[in-house]
Amino acid sequence: MSKPIDEKILKACINKDPKAQEAFYQYYSSSMYGICLRYSSQVEDAQDVLQEGFLKVFEKLSQFEGKGKLEAWLRQVFVRTALEHYRSNKLHLNLTGIEEIEEIGNEDFSMATLGQQEILQIMNQMAIGYKTILNLYAVEGYAHAEIAELLGISEGTSKSQLARARQQFKSIWFAKQGYKHGNN
């Protein structure tokens, strides 16, 4: 992780100094935009979330008080903002109840060949609910209990959705492989 922003800038941001706020934005916008994009199905949504998130951050920065890492706090704010945005814009989460999930064996896959761009392309083709779960669990490292609370679902649903999400990821990846090496 990059080193935290200069404390002077942080203090000036708490005092709502416009120039410090802009410097703060320039410093963190790129990594926060990454989060926004990962949780959105459209670029426009991600940009809305980015703006919403920074307004929230500047408003609540004085409450942060140096508890824990600033970047971790920022990431949390942006993830929550993205989820809120998503909830208010989507009709339904498309999450089904607990069912028996058959895990595909992992040993067959050598996924180390997948690069960042390829992964992002696959994620963008996934159903938004699955993408969200996979992001929360795998990338952000939230526990099922936290995910359940964030999304307003049960822990069991979170687990089964995660398994389905992984399956969908793999099937899209395989489909892409087939397309690449197919007769086209």
Binding site: Q26, S29, S30, Y33, R38, I119, A138, V139, F169
Partner: peptide
């Protein structure tokens, strides 16, 4: 898959369009 995603996307920092600020 989780480890792979964490590794590849944890620090995903794309370009931000200049017109947002």
């Amino acid at each position: 898959l989780d480890s792979l995603l964490k590794e590849q996307l944890g620090n995903y920092s794309p370009e931000v369009p200049a017109n947002l600020y």
